[in-house]
Design a protein around this nucleic acid. Structure first.
Lengths: 229, 229
DNA sequence: TATAATCATATTGCCAGACAAAATTGGTAG
DNA sequence: CTACCAATTTTGTCTGGCAATATGATTATA
């Protein structure tokens, strides 16, 4: 099963799009920040046309808001938005897990188990990068075999928007032990071929993550409030 | 509750985007059809830049596929895609109905009831347009008050893609009686404040619609096969 | 002083035209 | 009928420009 991911985006606008998306999701451009077309052009060494086309894509993904005659701004996420996004994510990840259990091969489940093991190892070894990689592998395996391609794409969008909150990376570390336990029981439900349980655990997993995230967000806001006062 | 919908999209590209989206969803441009930039420019009387920006948006919505160096093509939907889209729609509409029951005011529920009554009246009077309008009102009321704005948007996208199948309009008429009954019981579940049941009915409703749609699609395909032979 | 009107500047929205690179088409030779 | 090649079409990208709008500063006014 050779999985050829996205190779070279061969058009310039695709690379621009990728560069901007990357800059936004990694926090180079911060939520609320204004993106001036000219500056982006210089920064990237491309024409306005290319930048503008790329921006339309990001607008559609809701990573940037474009107000007519005022230009693009990196999207901001309100607490209510965050709540809703996590809610949806929970629903869809549960759905995906359920679908996965219903049609995964034993090998695919073994794959998940291996990824989970890698994850634990990386976590114990403080290998931040390894953690991310293992997580991605697990995630890909589940979503790629849940029987519904479109869920994947929607979830990708949800993730990138949730990431705008920037509460997740900090969060991850603290939550890791609990997170690992949850993943173990998820894998167990896979092995038991218990779809309903897999769904439940997935949903719970997301909900727990969201709780921690909201904790950070609240703290963040309190801080901001204190700074102002 | 003044609901100011989208007024006049005040930028040209937004109007172009709307015009193209409209042309695609109403079947002026058919799935698989190639869209040549020049022709679109002439047709719409705008520059290539505007057309291209609009196309990026539609690409993101997956109403058109853009293959590098080959240009935009109206998206086609495979049977498998259709299955998955309906599956998702079922999940999300169920979720929305559940959310609605959980937080709707009595008035909003009464609104639904009124819309359903209008729907029945229009159906009995063969008022095709009235049917669509009442349906839209019902739909808007539920989704607009389900507690999750993002579901709305995702469903909008799913609908427009499913509409590419063009099996729905034909379908609607035949299925109307059954559909009406389903909607009645949905409303009843609202009045009973039975969220779980509302969710179930919604999901079932979509699943039933999908079955009929697939019937048409199969027939369509058989026809195409016969024509080829 | 606070507010309102006015003007200068920055930025977006949109266009025309141009050209290289890639794809499509049509024809020709094998 | 296939394979290759030339002619044409179409996309990808850039440059430069101009009008309309928003932003910010300045001045006038209450």
């Amino acid at each position: 099963m050779a999985k050829l991911g996205v190779i070279h985006p061969d058009t310039l606008r695709q690379r621009v799009e990728g560069a901007l998306r990357n800059a936004i999701t990694t926090g180079v451009y911060r939520p609320g920040e204004r993106l001036v077309e000219r500056e982006l052009c210089e920064e990237l060494g491309v024409s306005r046309a290319s930048v503008r086309e790329a921006l339309r894509k990001l607008e559609a993904e809701k990573l940037v808001n474009i107000v007519p005659h005022r230009g693009p701004v990196v999207a901001t996420i309100s607490l209510e938005d965050a709540r809703q996004l996590y809610e949806l994510r929970s629903l869809l990840e549960g759905f995906a897990a359920n679908g996965f259990v219903g049609r995964a091969s034993d090998e695919q489940i073994a794959d998940c188990e291996a990824a989970a093991a890698d994850l634990r190892r990386a976590a114990e070894g403080q290998d931040q990068n390894g953690v991310l990689q293992a997580k991605a592998r697990l995630y890909d395996t589940i979503l790629g075999n849940c029987g519904n391609t479109h869920v994947w794409e929607i979830l990708r969008g949800l993730h990138s928007r949730i990431n705008l909150l920037r509460a997740t990376s900090l969060m991850d570390e603290e939550r890791l032990p609990k997170s690992l336990a949850e993943i173990d029981s998820l894998i167990q439900s896979f092995k038991d071929r218990d779809a309903k349980k897999a769904e439940e655990i997935s949903r719970l997993h997301v909900r727990n993550a969201s709780k921690v995230a909201f904790g950070y967000l609240a703290a963040q806001e309190a801080e901001a409030g204190a700074a102002k006062a």
